[in-house]
Design a protein around this nucleic acid. Sequence first.
DNA 1: CGGCATCCCTGGGAGC
DNA 2: TGCTCCCAGGGATGCC
Length: 277
Amino acid sequence: MPELPEVETVRKALLKIINKAVIKEVKIFRNDLRWNIKDNLRVILEKDIFQKPYRKGKYLLLPTFKNKILLIHLGMSGQIKIRDNKYVETKHDHITITVEAENSTEYSITYNDPRRFGYVDIFDKREVGHHFLLNRLGLDALDRNLTFGYLKGCFENRKKSIKNTIIDQSIIAGIGNIYASEILFSAKIHPYRSANSLNFDEISSIIKASKFILKKAIRVGGTTIQNHVQPDGKLGYFRQKLKVYGRKGLKCLNCKNIIITSFIGKRSTFFCEYCQV
DNA sequence: CGGCATCCCTGGGAGC
DNA sequence: TGCTCCCAGGGATGCC
């Protein structure tokens, strides 16, 4: 499932080709994603030129010279495919953008999403802070301003579980269900603990574990559970490095007790009830 | 405002 | 082999 490292993998792949790339053609095969894609997306984008892509949490933002931003969210099953211009569309491809890169090579960039939980939108750069999907986002998990002071403030008065708190995008943007289990396991914090019960050391270890795990996952191209594929078609290799997610019934890598799973707010959570306290 | 349930969607695996 | 059922989960929305 695309969380911060998977989206970052896509951003880095796009960065190699789309900066200063001319948008030659935009094809929309179906527009009923999570919300309907705007009718004028094709007209707005064609003949414009991409700039450097960036990311906020799980959102990918592709700015252009004409002061627009193409926003992409991969939902749960979304994928970006970067291929040469002879690419032939397959099932669940919803949009293909053909660009001419700075080196005159043509590429096709395709958004594929079987479950259509994702979204693609276009808007003016100046609206970026007001966009309905971006205006409530908290700090990005890799933002250097994500400090003890920031999280302490967010956790105050928050009685709900720390697991549900760190996947709340209005507090920390980028962490999803898989990395939440991994981060709490690494920080040795029980997922059911209420957010406001954490002390200085515990909050600090969550920050440290988040940055460490997310960066490590980015380095190997993200996690492939079901269908995360990097834009070049390669799988992400972080799955082999997961220490707790998906390890129900297996021995804890720290204390050899058995990893258990339960549902916290409808999401499966993996943890060790002995070394996570 | 916090917290919780509900809904959107399709593929894949389990069970019969 | 084929059917049905359940689960995976990001995040807006609406209700209390």
